[in-house]
Amino acid sequence: MSTTKLWGYLARYENPAELYHACEKVRDEGYQRWDACTPFPVHGLERAMGMKPTILPWIVLVCGVTGSVGMLGFLIYAMNELSPYIVGGKPIFSLPAYVPIWYEMTVLSSCLAAFLGNWILNGLPRPHHPAFASKAFERVTDDKFFIMIEAKDKNFDTKYTRLLLESTGASLIEELED
């Protein structure tokens, strides 16, 4: 077996309020590579964690506009240059006939951008996580609340980070191994 190396700390909390205040403390200490896990959405937690607004809307906008303009351009090119057919007695250039495809392509490219962007920004798919090795962590889907701080964080210190988590009132602190 290869030698294991510390991935980070896992701290357990008993209720959302404790977790909330612990997150505020961790945030104020300037940690970047850490996360909180809860059995249900805790409202306002993203503020307690100091999370920055996502850039996903911009990704969606850029992809949506690209898909939209690209499809309209392709339609005009295809229907007028590649194979100009008269359909239903309409002029060769008939904008209304392009609209449904133009619109659908805008929606499709925006949706795909939102879907895939969400996965990429969240680092998905992720089949395994060091926290899965912890027995205590299993109750994250039930009634316990967790914070994990990665050893990769530039502020991480084996002693000090443990002290910080202890000071936030964690009911259990575990070491997670990679």
Binding site: G88, G89, P96, A97, V99, P100
Partner: peptide, 12 residues
């Protein structure tokens, strides 16, 4: 609005 227009335009 476009759905209404589109079908009328197309069927003529």
């Amino acid at each position: 609005a476009f759905s209404q227009f589109m079908l009328i335009w197309y069927a003529n």
